[in-house]
Amino acid sequence: MDTFTTLLMAFISIVIINNLVLTKFLGICPYLGVSGRVDMAFGMGLAVTFVVTISGTLTWLIDHLILIPLDLEITRYICFILVIAGAVQLVEMYIRKFFPALYDSFGIFLPLITTNCAILGLCLFINLWGIDNLPEAAVLSFGAGIGFTVAICVMAGIRENLNLADVPKCLRGAPITLITAGLLTLAFMGFAGMIK
């Protein structure tokens, strides 16, 4: 029961309190770029969740089973980025082969994910927070993906309505999106301190 509560807390904390997009500024590029329509945003969110869960767990395993015992922490960044690039490739091949319909709907998002900072960022944060067991690392990775999906879908929903709003000409496009994101972080800040 105790471990279950810890895991649940970790999950809630990464989804809404320490949301990677809104409090750590990770994954801002797709957050601004792909949040034009809700269905696109949802697709991107799912693809990121998929990859981040795999690469977060894998990098934790590599870090704890290979790099730390061998004293090779120095090559951590290189290993992490290669694992992520590899994971994206594998996921892409797997989905193309076995779920062609899903592959069509993910489309261009999959290769783009390699340079999504949310994924490398999460792997680094797991390491920084000193997570020392596999279940927690896996839950955090999955939660980070869900958090990203939540943030990008909320944003897309707002932007769909924003298209109809009368925005000053010079603020159209990226500027108003950034200001909206700012107000959204303000709302999410209300969750801070919820878990002690």
Binding site: I17, N18, T23, A192, K196
Partner: peptide, 14 residues
């Protein structure tokens, strides 16, 4: 005297 380090959960982070 003695000195030591300790940590715990704060409002936003450790």
């Amino acid at each position: 005297g003695w000195s030591f380090n300790c940590s715990g959960a704060g409002f936003a982070d450790k």
